[in-house]
Nucleic acid binder design. Sequence first.
DNA 1: CTCCAGGCGCCTT
DNA 2: AAGGCGCATGGA
Length: 290
Amino acid sequence: MKEPYGMRTAAFAVGDYDLEATLNSGQAFRWTRCGESWASVVRGQWVRLRRFENVIQAEVALPTKDWAWLRAYLQLDLDLASVLRTFPHDGPMKSAMETCRGLRLLRQEPWECLASFIVSSTKQIVQIRQVISALCSRFGAPVAVPQGIAQEHAFPSPMVIASLEEADLRACKMGFRAPYLLETARQIAANPSILNLEDLSVEAARSRLMEFPGVGRKIADCVLLFAYGMQAAFPVDVWVARALRDLYFRGQRQSLAQLNSFALDYFGPFAGYAQQYLFHWMRTRPRGEG
DNA sequence: CTCCAGGCGCCTT
DNA sequence: AAGGCGCATGGA
């Protein structure tokens, strides 16, 4: 019998999917481990995920019939093997692919992704998570949670952030990034369609994002990659710059422009996907190796 | 204590 | 065009 009002749980068949690496690789900042599961708020809904042998089990707070939003977020329909085949077959990429087997890119909500990465500049991932947690608990709308689960909050909308003062944001410990986030939120609140970049080329979409204060090439590329699925975007941060320099330029320092130009040529149509493998590999392998 | 973190904007050359 | 510096905050 079909449950007319939907179920609070669902199971999605998956093969090559490393849930932990995916949720904990610095692309999203609100996932927390609870035992064998991972919990977060996605598009205003509390979610808990657990990986079993052949499925990912999902639990939400309210009976649900349509799980398309979660399937899209987790990118369950992507054929990962066909993406990996496009990566260069060099030593570093082979090591990264072995170490990070099953690592995926998520498809996040654009505003949350943009705001999160505006906050990210020159911060460690643990700090980014703390700032975003404070931002959500102070200013995000409460969301439904199951019995016995602590109150959670949605990511605050552009309109909510736009209505705040700079001091409110600084109270979340985001420092000099506060005016950037505030002004970006105000521009988007005044014209929400400004984030409708889906039909633009990567270059045009990047230019639009870089018009926001606090958004340069790197943050724009993160948003293109993690929210819009534009997988040719190749964010170059300190980790990736170091990896490229050491692995492909014999340790000789290159300018960001040179690294971006190299990456576009070298890593192919899914360069951004390859970047996430390099990034996660560099961050998780023991120091001093390779 | 110092160094650095998923950078950016602005100011010099 | 290209490079240097300050910016808040806190982990290592």
